[in-house]
Computed example of a mutant assay.
Amino acid sequence: MQQHISNTQIEADSLTSGARFVRACLRKPVDRTPVWFLRQAGRYMPEYQAVRRHHSLLEICRKPELAAEVTITAAEKLDVDAAIIFADLLLPFQPMGLDFEFQAGEGPVVHKPVRTLEDVARLRTDRASELGYVAEAIEKVAGHFKDRIGVIGFCGAPFTLASYMIEGGSSRNYVATKTMMYRQPDAWRLLMDKLVTVLSEYARQQVEASADVIQIFDSWTGVLSVEDYRDFVLPVTRTLIREVQSFGVPVIYFGVETASLLPAMRETGADVLGLDWRTPLGEAWKSLDYACAVQGNLDPITLFAEPELIRERVKGILRQAGGRPGHIFNLGHGIVPDTPVENVQYVVRCVRELSTEVTRG
């Protein structure tokens, strides 16, 4: 196991990108704002397209050498401070006994959705070791970068994975998911407990393989009211986050359209909350009493703008952060297909230049 980046006895003006990123997650002083991107390895990048011509998405995820190659190529091409392992949120489904596939234009499809207590009872929790290929990919990435940049592992959050299991894919209204929450409390609790068991083990494998940080994606939690989040999601998410933190790494917790949920999400104890682009970063951080680090939150579609506007938006976010320890620059969601690669690279240069001015100013 590779030694994790030290968070103490480091001079803030002589940081590697990896140390800078981890320190920011822990709200420790850094010389400039670290930057990486959600979906930084993906369809917008020609190198990834070349790999996809010969391999499906799941093949790339399940072959450590391919997942590592895609991860490393993107991080080096963009010159970011952290590399997030190439994987998919739904990978834990297979060892739990739930088959899924990706259909063109449909996204992930679960052919036999989980709808009853009996369905939940059949899900396995004893085969998480079958996900070891993700840890192998992380080992390869960490071995390549040797602490020069941070390595991020990740998993889905219990609510988001449950929603895919129950709906059978994406959903507009999440009727089946919420109906189980409301009308089958025993099934819901058992499903949450089983997901935490599998996800904890999955995250542990990634940390032991030298992931410096774990990001937990709660992509669809924004569909919940504050009351439903607190009643049905917060307790189990807090349990998972504390379990992952016990492995010795910071946790980033991210959801979409979650402005109303941010105070409740803070109660999970996550080290970093990811912010989408709909909420001004300064207002969101202040509403959290600066009690955790924040990540974000440029609108991904801004990457299609002219350089002058991109630079202005980057500067605006950095001004809102104000050089306060604990800001990681990122998008408010993932890079979309057809995004100009040169514009993503330009954002990195802008963050490096402008955050240094803000920090020293």
Score class of each variant (00 low, 15 high):
Ile5Thr: 13
Ser6Gly: 12
Gln9Pro: 00
Glu11Val: 11
Leu15Ala: 11
Ala19Trp: 12
Val22Phe: 00
Ala24Ile: 09
Ala24His: 14
Leu26Tyr: 12
Leu26Lys: 15
Asp31Ser: 06
Thr33Ser: 09
Thr33Gln: 10
Leu38Thr: 08
Ala41Asn: 13
Tyr44Met: 04
Met45Trp: 13
Glu47Arg: 07
Arg53Trp: 01
His55Ser: 07
Ser56Arg: 04
Glu59Phe: 12
Glu59Ala: 08
Glu59Gln: 15
Arg62Thr: 00
Lys63Pro: 02
Pro64Leu: 07
Leu66Asn: 05
Ala68Asp: 02
Ile72His: 00
Thr73Leu: 11
Ala74Phe: 03
Ala75Val: 06
Leu78Tyr: 04
Leu78His: 08
Asp81Tyr: 09
Asp81Ala: 09
Ala82Tyr: 11
Ala82Glu: 12
Phe86Val: 12
Pro92Lys: 04
Phe93Cys: 14
Pro95Ile: 04
Pro95Leu: 00
Phe102Trp: 14
His111Ile: 04
Pro113His: 02
Val114His: 13
Glu118Arg: 10
Leu123Gln: 02
Ala128Asn: 06
Glu136Val: 08
Phe145Gln: 13
Asp147Leu: 06
Val151Asn: 07
Val151Gly: 09
Cys155Pro: 11
Cys155Lys: 11
Gly156Glu: 03
Ala157Met: 14
Ala157Phe: 10
Ala157Pro: 14
Ser163Gly: 12
Ser163Asp: 13
Arg172Gly: 06
Arg172Lys: 15
Tyr174Asn: 06
Ala176Tyr: 15
Lys178Thr: 04
Thr179Tyr: 09
Gln184Pro: 01
Pro185Val: 08
Asp193Asn: 09
Asp193Trp: 01
Thr197Phe: 06
Val198Asp: 10
Leu199Ser: 06
Leu199Tyr: 08
Ser200Ala: 14
Tyr202Cys: 05
Ala209Pro: 00
Ala209His: 00
Ala211His: 07
Ile214Gly: 10
Gln215His: 13
Gln215Glu: 11
Ile216Tyr: 04
Phe217His: 09
Ser219Pro: 08
Val223Thr: 15
Leu224His: 05
Val226Ala: 14
Arg230Asp: 13
Arg230Met: 09
Asp231Thr: 15
Val236Gln: 14
Leu240Lys: 10
Gln245Asn: 02
Ser246Tyr: 05
Pro250Ser: 03
Val251Glu: 01
Val251Arg: 02
Tyr253Gln: 07
Tyr253Cys: 05
Thr258Pro: 05
Thr258Asp: 08
Leu262Pro: 08
Pro263His: 04
Gly269Lys: 07
Gly269Asn: 11
Asp271Ile: 01
Trp277Cys: 00
Pro280Ile: 02
Pro280Trp: 08
Pro280Glu: 04
Ala284Cys: 00
Lys286Pro: 01
Tyr290Ser: 05
Ala293His: 06
Asn297Thr: 00
Leu298Asp: 03
Ile301Thr: 15
Leu303Cys: 12
Leu303Phe: 11
Phe304Asp: 01
Ala305Pro: 01
Glu308Thr: 10
Glu308Arg: 07
Ile310Arg: 13
Arg311Thr: 14
Arg311Phe: 07
Lys315Trp: 14
Gln320Trp: 00
Ile328His: 05
Pro337Lys: 05
Asp338Thr: 15
Asn343Cys: 03
Asn343Pro: 04
Val351Cys: 08
Leu354Arg: 07
Glu357Phe: 08
